[in-house]
Nucleic acid binder design. Structure first.
Lengths: 156, 156
DNA sequence: GCGAACGTTCAGAAATTTCTGAAGACAGGA
DNA sequence: TCCTGTCTTCAGAAATTTCTGAACGTTCGC
């Protein structure tokens, strides 16, 4: 119900907030393009045109978001080009991935707890460890609950 | 129970993982310094020495982490210098703050939903909006549950 | 009011990240 | 096999971020 310009603006706006959330600029723009297209899949060429960037940039961005598990390569009959499709569960996947970063932090904190003797630092580190451990455990539960709820299943 | 060198290494390691999680380098190093010190509070001078950086850098980093709500200015009798102390709830605060970034994303998605007519893009955007809305609602509940659990209270 | 100790600001330097464009690799058709 | 269209890689350019150091404020004791 709206013009091409508004669509692109909304896409760029989404990309900007994703950058604010820590994503790389080009990856964010790529994801936003996938969100806003009416097509089932996009090729690298489509993206280059839509985003107005070089083929090289697109290649790098696709590699990144594919590795994040947000898009997948698909085969399209009659087309020699590689097509990509955004996965339905992209956002829950991204959320879970962020928690693998949390896992890295947790490991570093663990080492810290071992590295210092009793005292203030030890106490602080243990508190931090407790919270991050809690998060690591609860995040998957949260995602599962969302998906159950979305499928309209009654609460567990 | 360990040498100064190991302590600093563990601190730098933690800072690095925080950078990986999206924090600015200097802010991360500052927080790590607060985590690993045995002192109750640190001054800008302490930090400059501990981290081996200029007073200017420390000033900027302190400003940042203070604004994030991770440390606070405190008054120490007999000292003319400004002292800073890490807040106990720093990590839960940081977690909540990250969800205010999520809120920005949500607003952008909302605008997107309004900007496109019915179709694939609309469906994708709605799905994304549902998940982010779910997160925004559940995050505070999660933090509250952690704090209750930590205080040893029985489940709600 | 003056001097000393600290903290802040900001212009520019340094380091890092991001993007491009050209060269090359690869697959399929003829 | 050769050609064409497509994708990838990578060295360097451009943009951005981060850090420094010097100048300037501010506060406090004297």
């Amino acid at each position: 119900m709206t013009g091409e310009t508004e669509r692109r603006e909304a896409a760029e706006q989404l990309a900007l907030t994703l950058v604010g959330a820590g994503m790389q600029r080009m990856g964010a723009r790529t994801i936003a393009a996938f969100m806003f297209t009416e097509k089932e899949s996009l090729t690298a060429g489509d993206l280059a045109e839509e985003l107005g960037v070089s083929a090289g940039s697109v290649s790098g961005a696709i590699k990144m978001v594919a590795q994040m598990g947000l898009i997948e390569r698909i085969y399209v009959a009659g087309s020699r080009r590689e097509h990509f499709r955004m996965l339905d569960n992209a956002w829950t996947t991204l959320y879970s991935r962020q928690h693998s970063v949390v896992d890295d932090v947790l490991r570093a904190v663990d080492k810290g707890v071992e590295a210092v003797g009793p005292g203030l630092a030890h106490d602080r580190l243990e508190y931090m460890r407790d919270f991050y451990t809690f998060l690591i455990n609860e995040a998957p539960v949260l995602v599962e609950r969302f998906e159950r709820q979305r499928r309209g299943e009654p609460r567990s």
